[in-house]
Amino acid sequence: MTSQRIALITGGNRGLGRATALALAERGVDVVVTYRAGKDQAEEVVESVTGLGRTAVALSLDTAVVAGFDDFTDELRRTLRERWHRDDFDYLVNNAGIAVTAAFADTTESEFDALIDVHLKGVFFLTQKLLPLIADGGRIVNLSTGLTRFTSVGQAAYASVKGAVEVLTRYLAKELGPRGITVNTVAPGPVATDFAGGIMRDDEGFRAMLASQTALGRVGEPTDVGGAIGALLADGSGWITGQRVEVSGGILL
């Protein structure tokens, strides 16, 4: 791995992706953030990373559209050569996501398919497409959810798909181990972002209820998760692979 490390963060324009980009920049890592919508947000992240003394680029990507992955990979390859004079990067954070909240009996096929496309199919085939660009000795972090351990009404489809991501993580860790690439899952608990309509950020009553269920007595902030991802990508964490790391403040222990 070269001395200047580079991370690619999908959905890096807001929420946990943005927090991860900033956490990594503070640790001396350059970043490529992707966005589906929210180009202005992505450019703000680039400015913030630049303000921390690191190099950053924002690229458009819809992780639900596998047909676009070839063009994205070509654009990423060009960007790596032009900005860093490299043909590879070091860290992949599969963060991009969408929310669907519906009781099992009410979940539609289109809602289920949308979750599969972004959270599982997109993660599977984007990672596959990017494998030649990930440096030997690199790291991959996939985002899951605390809801794969505990349950909440309305999250059956979302949690099931994330459970599949956790299984995929273990298989990737096994298959990519010979290249020295580690693969882990970070599973956030309730975090105050705009995800799922921002309920955990904006609804004080809901926040208080969730906080009462955690060992640390509060809802998480994006920096809590960004910091955990940064720790998994740090130099001293290279012996950790195939693991699920829950970042939840100890909810429902």
Rank of each mutant, 00 (worst) to 15 (best):
A7R: 08
G11T: 11
R14E: 00
R18T: 07
L22P: 03
A25C: 04
R27Q: 08
V29G: 05
V33I: 15
T34I: 05
D40H: 08
Q41I: 03
E43S: 07
V45T: 03
V45D: 01
E47I: 13
S48T: 13
R54S: 00
V65G: 00
V66N: 06
D71F: 12
E75M: 14
R78Y: 01
L80Y: 13
H85F: 07
H85R: 12
H85I: 09
Y91A: 13
N95A: 14
G97D: 15
A99Q: 12
A99V: 12
T101H: 11
E109H: 14
S110R: 13
S110I: 14
L115Q: 06
D117L: 11
K121M: 09
V123A: 08
L130Q: 03
L131K: 06
D136H: 07
G138T: 10
I140F: 03
V141Q: 03
T151L: 08
G154E: 02
Q155G: 04
S160L: 05
V161E: 04
L168I: 07
L168C: 07
R170P: 01
L172C: 09
L172Y: 14
A173M: 08
R179P: 05
V183R: 04
V183M: 06
P188I: 04
P188N: 02
G189Y: 06
G189S: 05
P190E: 00
V191L: 06
A192Y: 02
F195I: 05
G198P: 10
D202K: 14
D203T: 13
Q213N: 10
V219Y: 04
G220F: 03
A228L: 07
I229E: 01
G230M: 09
L233H: 00
L233F: 02
G236Q: 01
G238R: 15
G249P: 04
